[in-house]
């Protein structure tokens, strides 16, 4: 399905505000977005709210592949938000670095 709505894009300031290996939450439009910066490189963005019971995903532990929600340890793929542990999937967005700045796109 191709999206007809305008893609929302936000420039969120320096990438360094996310410590390596951790995640931080941002608001992009009305959408709370957790952006992760795994040690293995790259940036990943997921909806910030765990689909299981609303846990704060930006507070989760992260490896190169998944984030683990701090409340009940469900794990979500950083790439596409899919959950391998039986909870619903979480929406995945695009996060990139442009000239040292963090850019997140929805849609």
């Amino acid at each position: 399905m191709s999206s007809t709505e305008e893609a929302v894009e936000a420039r969120l300031g320096p990438v360094d505000q996310i410590p390596v290996g951790e995640g931080r939450a941002f608001l992009v439009g009305d959408e709370p977005v957790a952006v992760f910066r795994p040690r293995s490189g790259g940036l990943h963005a997921l909806r910030a709210i765990c689909p299981h019971r609303g846990g704060p995903l930006a507070d989760g532990l992260v490896d190169g592949e998944v984030v683990m929600c701090p409340l009940h340890n469900h794990q979500f793929s950083l790439v596409d938000g899919s959950c391998a542990t039986g909870a619903d999937d979480v929406a995945a967005y695009t996060a990139t670095e442009e000239d040292g700045e963090l850019v997140v796109r929805l849609g």
């Binding site: 410590p19 931080r24 939450a25 941002f26 608001l27 709370p32 910030a48 704060p56 930006a58």
Partner: peptide, 10 residues
């Protein structure tokens, strides 16, 4: 950075 920032804004 952001150690004590809210992880669930708004």
């Amino acid at each position: 950075p952001g150690q004590f920032h809210d992880a669930l804004p708004l």
